Amino acid sequence: MQAIVQCVQTSWTKLSRGGPEAARRNAAPTAFPLPSRRPPFVHEVRMDEQGDFQPRFDIRDEERPDSPVKLTAADGLLRVRVEVTPYGMPRRWRRPPARRIGPGEWLRWQVNYRFVGCCSGEWNYRLDTLNIGYGVEGAEVFLGTPTHIVDERAELF
């Protein structure tokens, strides 16, 4: 399977919910150039408020078992399904169906969450942007316009 998955995870607290701090958070990219590797691989990027939204990179040969991205190749297409964490709010009772992408196509799937700290009760937020390509080439492929978009971002209050 010639799949490339780029997981971009951005997290923040209420300090970055408004004003200049929110502008910094919103300026965080949702895609990055890919490393020079042959597929399949997973390119993980994490950014957080504490680290001034500076990206930290990790590369894996395959998805971790706990990954939210579930891929299946069949009939020349790649079936992409994203599972949401059961711990985040808001609850998503109705979800978009899995998407199929063909060779040379890529999908951007975005989902956001609000979490409540178990001891402090403080709210934390996260945006997951999943860029998934099937048979795509080029380091900057995810910097362009996606072939398919699934937007599960919700009002987080």
Rank of each mutant, 00 (worst) to 15 (best):
D52K: 07
L107D: 00
T147F: 04
V141S: 10
R95I: 11
I101P: 03
V80T: 07
M1D: 14
T85H: 00
D52R: 11
Q9Y: 09
P86M: 12
Y125K: 07
E62A: 15
L156A: 07
F32D: 10
E137L: 09
V42Q: 02
D151E: 06
P97K: 11
T10D: 01
F157A: 14
F157D: 15
T13A: 11
Y125H: 03
Q50H: 04
N112K: 02
A98F: 03
L143M: 03
S36G: 06
T13Q: 00
T30E: 09
E122N: 13
V42D: 01
A28I: 06
V8D: 00
G88C: 07
W109H: 14
R108E: 12
L15D: 05
R60Y: 08
E83K: 09
V84Q: 06
I101D: 09
W12P: 09
C7S: 14
Q9K: 14
S36K: 10
V45Y: 02
V136Y: 02
T147P: 04
L77P: 02
R37Q: 15
G135K: 00
R81V: 08
N26L: 04
L127I: 05
Y125G: 07
G133R: 01
E137V: 13
V141Q: 08
M1N: 11
G144C: 13
W12A: 05
T145A: 13
R153W: 08
L107W: 05
W93H: 12
V116Q: 15
